[in-house]
Nucleic acid binder design. Structure first.
Length: 265
DNA sequence: CCTATAGCCTGACGGC
DNA sequence: TGCCGTCAGGCTATAG
């Protein structure tokens, strides 16, 4: 699930539920998801402290602890948070569980364990180490940067948009959505796009991500003109009604409308 | 250097 | 019902 819009919604959820709450304890139900700390270290650093700030960059969520240091959540393909009242059972595949003083708990759930949680002193150092580009919705992800990134690669536009080193936050689903809205074929070579197309793509990208966040990253809440709710086998193009095409592009499943999204490669 | 591909991990779904 | 293959909104290490 988690691309930029999803993670932004997780961040808002985290802020609304888990900020400024005394953490009485934390459980590590599966330490596969911890990347640079042991279960014991994790529990010790969290216990009797509070989360007091959050920040998102691309698909990463940073939460600050009031005793210094940040916890970094990455959600992989199947991660999410669930905040619930103490007595209830934690969801299946809960890997980490925070117990708050108000008798609520926050679960970090990750079915496939492709996500990771770690501790960092400085988020900016972490981002640099990961080689991440600017967050797709930030000011520093401007047209010039975007355009340079696309010129620098010979790959297809879809994987170029998903390259976190160029621009952080766009994944498989939203790259399809952005290309559909911009009416660009996903296999078009990134460095062959004309100036006008690059500009259109850039504005579409920002627009789609913002719209998705406004709709809580919920396909049901997307505008009728969006591909997302139709992105399934047998899906029809919301613009022309034609059959959507499903194809593997650099290892990932792409959906697009062959009629609306030209086929100039 | 670059880009493309297999592998990680677990479960859901469809076909036989 | 059971078994098997395929697929899944991410990233990394490795191969070419």
């Amino acid at each position: 699930m988690p691309e930029l819009p999803d993670v932004e919604v997780f961040r808002q959820y985290f802020e609304a539920t888990s900020l400024h709450q005394g953490i009485e304890s934390a459980q590590v139900l599966n330490d596969d998801v911890l990347s640079n700390v042991s279960a014991r270290q994790f529990q010790n650093r969290v216990r009797n402290h509070q989360f007091d700030a959050s920040r998102r960059h691309g698909k990463y969520l940073f939460v600050h602890l009031n005793n210094d240091g940040w916890l970094v959540f990455h959600f992989g393909m199947t991660g999410y948070f669930d905040y619930f009242k103490g007595k209830h059972k934690a969801p299946k595949h809960t890997r980490l569980l925070f117990q708050f003083a108000n008798d609520y708990q926050l679960a970090y759930v990750s079915q496939r364990k492709l996500g990771k949680v770690s501790f960092v002193e400085d988020p900016d150092d972490f981002l640099k180490d990961q080689g991440l580009g600017p967050d797709a919705l930030s000011e520093s992800a401007d047209l010039t940067t975007f355009s340079k990134a696309l010129e620098s690669t010979r790959s297809a536009i879809k994987p170029a948009l998903m390259n976190q080193g160029h621009l952080a936050g766009v994944g498989n689903i939203y790259s399809d959505e952005v290309l559909f809205q911009a009416k660009i074929h996903p296999e078009t070579k990134a460095n062959r796009l004309g100036d006008a197309e690059v500009r259109r793509l850039f504005h579409t990208l920002k627009e789609v991500l913002k719209t998705a966040i406004d709709g809580k990253a919920d396909p049901e809440q997307m505008p009728d003109s969006y591909l997302l709710p139709h992105r399934q086998k047998g899906g029809k193009c919301p613009a022309c009604g034609g059959n959507l095409k499903r194809e593997k592009i650099s290892g990932r499943t792409a959906y697009y409308c062959p009629r609306c999204q030209g086929r100039d490669k």
